[in-house]
Amino acid sequence: MIRVVVADDEPVVRVGVAAVLGTAGDIEVVAEAADGREAVELVRAHRPDVAVLDIRMPHLDGVEAAAELARIGSATPVLVLTTFADDASISRALGGGAAGFVLKTGDPQELIAGVRAVASGAAYLSPLVTRRVLDGLPTTRHAGSAHARVAALTDRERDVLGLIGAGLSNAEIGRRLHVVEGTVKIYVSTILGRLGVRNRVQAAIVAHDAGLIPPDA
Rank of each mutant, 00 (worst) to 15 (best):
112 I>P: 02
149 R>V: 04
93 A>N: 11
117 A>P: 13
198 R>M: 03
154 T>H: 07
192 L>T: 13
115 V>E: 06
113 A>Y: 00
184 V>Q: 11
87 D>T: 02
59 H>F: 09
110 E>N: 15
63 V>A: 08
118 V>W: 10
156 R>I: 11
181 E>V: 12
158 R>L: 15
104 K>L: 13
94 L>K: 01
67 A>S: 14
91 S>N: 00
157 E>D: 12
178 H>M: 03
199 N>A: 07
158 R>D: 06
124 Y>C: 05
83 T>L: 14
62 G>M: 06
76 T>D: 05
62 G>W: 10
130 T>W: 00
101 F>S: 02
64 E>L: 04
202 Q>M: 09
99 A>W: 08
180 V>N: 14
101 F>D: 08
99 A>P: 00
125 L>G: 04
148 A>M: 02
163 L>F: 15
169 S>L: 15
73 G>K: 09
181 E>G: 00
143 A>E: 14
117 A>V: 04
94 L>Y: 07
136 G>H: 04
72 I>T: 06
123 A>W: 15
156 R>K: 07
174 G>F: 09
147 H>Y: 00
89 S>F: 06
143 A>R: 14
147 H>E: 10
144 G>R: 04
159 D>H: 15
97 G>F: 12
127 P>K: 03
107 D>Y: 02
100 G>C: 07
199 N>H: 12
97 G>T: 03
173 I>T: 12
178 H>V: 11
90 I>S: 03
151 A>V: 00
126 S>V: 01
183 T>M: 04
144 G>S: 10
146 A>D: 09
110 E>Y: 13
140 T>G: 00
128 L>T: 11
127 P>T: 06
144 G>M: 06
103 L>R: 02
186 I>W: 01
134 L>V: 13
126 S>L: 02
137 L>I: 13
104 K>E: 09
108 P>W: 11
66 A>N: 08
195 L>E: 14
75 A>I: 04
201 V>I: 12
58 P>Y: 04
160 V>Y: 02
100 G>D: 08
119 A>V: 01
177 L>W: 06
75 A>K: 15
153 L>K: 04
131 R>T: 12
134 L>E: 01
129 V>C: 02
180 V>K: 13
78 V>P: 03
161 L>C: 11
84 F>R: 07
64 E>H: 14
82 T>K: 05
70 A>Y: 04
122 A>L: 14
73 G>Y: 13
141 R>C: 07
64 E>M: 12
149 R>H: 00
78 V>S: 02
124 Y>W: 15
125 L>F: 15
108 P>D: 03
202 Q>V: 01
161 L>F: 15
130 T>M: 09
129 V>Y: 03
188 V>P: 06
101 F>Q: 05
131 R>E: 11
95 G>L: 12
66 A>K: 05
129 V>G: 02
